[in-house]
């Protein structure tokens, strides 16, 4: 359960950005979570709801976009989504592949209410 510690990092960034923008409160937070990011989105949601109490994001909504693990074959150029993380090209069997997405754990955007 490292999701709590990840959410703690998230709040460090949120507070910093809110200060920069002189925000009154945070309305929503959007994350991108890859299938191979190593975190469980549901645990992130739970941790977020625990952590947000009494902060600038007290009423904020957390939106999570699940990003599939996508690879591209460097031999035949085929692109494919791999839910089982098998690193072998479906088309030609090559193992010379490039990861396109699915390992990310990103804070994409923040929606806030400004002071004035």
């Amino acid at each position: 359960m490292h999701e709590l510690s990840i959410v703690a990092n998230l709040f460090e960034i949120l507070e910093e950005k809110a200060k920069e923008q002189k925000a009154k409160k945070i309305i929503s937070v959007k994350l991108k979570v890859g299938a191979l990011s190593g975190v469980v989105p549901e645990f992130l949601e739970t941790a977020f709801d625990i952590y947000k109490k009494g902060t600038i994001a007290d009423k904020a909504k957390l939106k999570i976009e699940d990003v599939p693990f996508k690879i591209q074959c460097q031999k035949c150029q085929a692109e494919m989504v791999k839910d089982d993380f098998v690193f072998i090209c479906d088309t030609c069997g090559s193992t010379d592949l490039k990861t396109l997405s699915g390992t990310e754990l990103l804070l994409e955007k923040i929606e806030m209410e400004l002071t004035s």
Binding site: I6, I13, L31, L107, K109, I110, L114
Partner: peptide, 12 residues
Amino acid sequence: KKKEILVLEELL
């Protein structure tokens, strides 16, 4: 007044 900002920062 609302504002949306693009952050694109890695959580780790």
